[in-house]
Amino acid sequence: MTNAVLTGLVLGGMYALIAMGLTLQYGVARIMNLAYGEFLIGSAFASYFLFTGWAVNPLVGLIVIVPVSFVVSFLLYKIFLTPLVRRARTRDALEVDSILATFGLMFIVQGILLTMFGGAYFSYSFLAIPVTVVGEVLAMNRLVAFALAVVLGTVLYLLLTRTRIGTSIRAVAVDPASAPLVAINVPQLSALAFAAGGALVASAGVLISMFLTFSATSGVVFTMKALIVVVMGGIGNLMGCLVAGMLLGLSEALVATYIDPGLTIAVNFALFLGVLLVRPAGIFGRGGR
């Protein structure tokens, strides 16, 4: 039981971290990014490359990979997604357009990864030292990944709630139409939020590569889980990501331990539908009027 709960907590922390990046991209920049998981896998491969090629510690690799992802995502939004934002007349139209565009992007990133690495699974051994936590044995790399996820999540939360720019970002998430009235530069902040989301998913990719095997095509699963967590928690809500992510991680670990490891996706969907039937706007979502 303790082991299942610990595994669930680590998994849930990861899901929460992944979802926080997506909730910034979707909640603030209004881009429903279906290529999100591909960026996670992209940075996992980058970390693998640095570690096996140049023996760069993944934790040091973070310092390189995260800023690069920030810049790449920023440019991506500015060059590639801004035309869609301008073209869209309604929020629904932008949603459909961004789904389709990032869909194409998903294939492109996946295609590049496939041509570079093929379809095989990759992993590397880093900090694979057993440690004992409350009487249960866990791998060190999982604990480190979890701790870093907690730190990153906390930093993001403080940035959004305690700084001026964070407050503006939250204002855009709540009401993009009124934000310009209080002198908020919505296009600029949207680009920043999208880039911050890219940086977060990159960090999640590095952390996950330390303890999970991955392949060029495993991104889709992460996109799916991130989307489920974001919608379940309430779009644009960080606390929602945390609670929904933990819920998902714990339920997956418990079902895998006690019922059948082959039913995790079924559990995801059952939770997703269950939550939405009771609270259509998500756990922390503001109910539609």
């Binding site: 629904d92 799916m224 919608v231 082959g262 995790t264 995801n268 997703f272 539908l273 939405l276």
Partner: peptide, 24 residues
């Protein structure tokens, strides 16, 4: 009954879900 986005997300994983149930 859900919004369009929720529908996309659900159908996004539906094939995987059905596949998992069949395998199980």
């Amino acid at each position: 009954r859900l919004s369009g986005v929720h529908f996309v997300i659900f159908t996004f994983g539906l094939a995987e879900l059905v596949k998992q149930l069949v395998v199980w």
